[in-house]
Simulated scan of single mutants.
Amino acid sequence: MNQQIKSKPSTLTKYDSIKFLSKNDIKLNDPKAWEWRGQFQEEEQSFADFRSLNHKITDSLKVIYIYPIGDFDSLENQLIIATKDYLSRFYQRKIVINSSFSTKAIPEKGKRNHYGKDQILAPYILYEMLEQDNPPVSLLKLAVTNEDIYPKESWNYVFGLANYKKSVGVSSFHRFSDNNLKESNFSQTLSRLIKTSTHEINHMLKIQHCVKAVCLMNGANNLGELDGRPNRLCSECLAKLTWSLDIKLKNRKMLLNRYFLENKLLSDLKHTSQDLEILKEVN
């Protein structure tokens, strides 16, 4: 047992426990020029900075809504259901899958053909589709699509996009399986989609990109960077989420650990197992 943990006080707050989890944080390497942090210079958002935003969600009954956008086969529908399950464990909130939207109704202003690839304008999804819908007891709304998306004309594509002021976001799994989801790449696609979906939802909760440690909230320019970041929040970003939603820390880690085991996401399972070992010692 770690000596620091041996000498812990008899009563710990959840934030004391999170400090112990910093032992499992991994320091970021210096970025390469083509990586997200090499292209975008972002300031660190500390826990104190985040708390000053006063974005604490006190209503535990508020729901996260998922909006499927596109035409989905049975395997893609399984992917969305598995994502719903993950989000319920990650945020400890009720998740509702809303009625799906067909892309056929999207007008020309909301899409383009870019070098032979059809794409949907992500802001059109956010503001013309999601923002206009008002489901009951909504906390936030996330679209999930199998279509390729782009944020503006000068960009080739994005994996996801969110607006925290409007509490709307979108994630696309089009590039996660080269638009060819099958049993053999299902687990990899699922890992990428739950990373992107939680990353965008965290933005809706006003959690900025992490520049402090290897973290789910690191920015990503490509699949290599996306695959290189874990389905794990660093201790500081976890403190932000915990404060915002009043997360039950140990219970959440246990639920995530079981999910990774059930879905054979072994790399993610390793991270949660390491965190659980610490939480068992300090609680």
Rank of each mutant, 00 (worst) to 15 (best):
S138I: 00
R93W: 04
M129N: 03
I106W: 02
L75V: 03
A143D: 06
M129I: 15
E153R: 13
V96L: 10
W36G: 04
L53P: 03
S100P: 04
S102N: 11
D133L: 14
K111R: 15
L28P: 10
E131W: 07
Y124S: 12
I64E: 09
L121E: 05
V137C: 11
H114N: 08
Q119L: 10
L121S: 01
Q41F: 11
D133I: 13
P31Q: 09
S99P: 00
L140Y: 00
G38L: 14
L28A: 11
N113F: 11
I97D: 01
I69F: 06
I57E: 12
D85N: 15
F47M: 01
E147C: 14
V158W: 01
Y91W: 10
G70C: 14
K165W: 04
F50D: 08
G110I: 06
L121C: 05
Q92A: 01
R93M: 09
V158N: 07
F50H: 13
Q132T: 14
Y127R: 10
D30I: 12
W36R: 02
L140C: 15
E128I: 02
E43W: 02
P31Y: 04
Y91N: 01
R112I: 11
Q132C: 04
P107E: 05
L140T: 04
R51Y: 00
D148Q: 10
S154W: 03
H114C: 02
V144G: 01
R112H: 05
K117L: 11
H55W: 06
H55K: 13
N156H: 06
T103F: 04
Y65Q: 09
E128V: 06
I81L: 15
F47R: 01
S60N: 13
D133P: 00
Y124V: 07
N146Q: 05
E128F: 01
K94H: 09
I57W: 00
I95Y: 03
T145V: 08
A48R: 05
N146G: 10
Q45E: 13
L161E: 10
K27N: 13
D148S: 12
P107H: 07
D59E: 12
K109P: 02
Y127C: 06
L126F: 12
P151F: 08
N77Q: 13
L142W: 02
W36S: 12
F72A: 06
Y157A: 07
N156W: 10
G110E: 11
G160T: 09
Y91I: 02
G160Q: 02
L126A: 10
R89V: 04
G160S: 05
L53I: 13
R51N: 07
N113Y: 13
K109Y: 05
K166S: 15
P136R: 08
R93K: 12
E35N: 07
G116H: 09
S99A: 02
I120C: 00
E44G: 07
N77D: 04
A105N: 12
I120D: 09
D73N: 13
I69C: 07
R93A: 05
D59I: 06
G160D: 02
G70A: 08
F101K: 06
Q41S: 15
D118N: 15
I106T: 05
N156I: 12
D71F: 06
Y65C: 02
P123T: 12
F101E: 14
T103P: 12
W34M: 00
G116E: 13
K166C: 10
S102C: 10
K27I: 09
F47I: 06
P107Q: 08
K166Y: 09
L121V: 07
L161A: 04
Y150I: 01
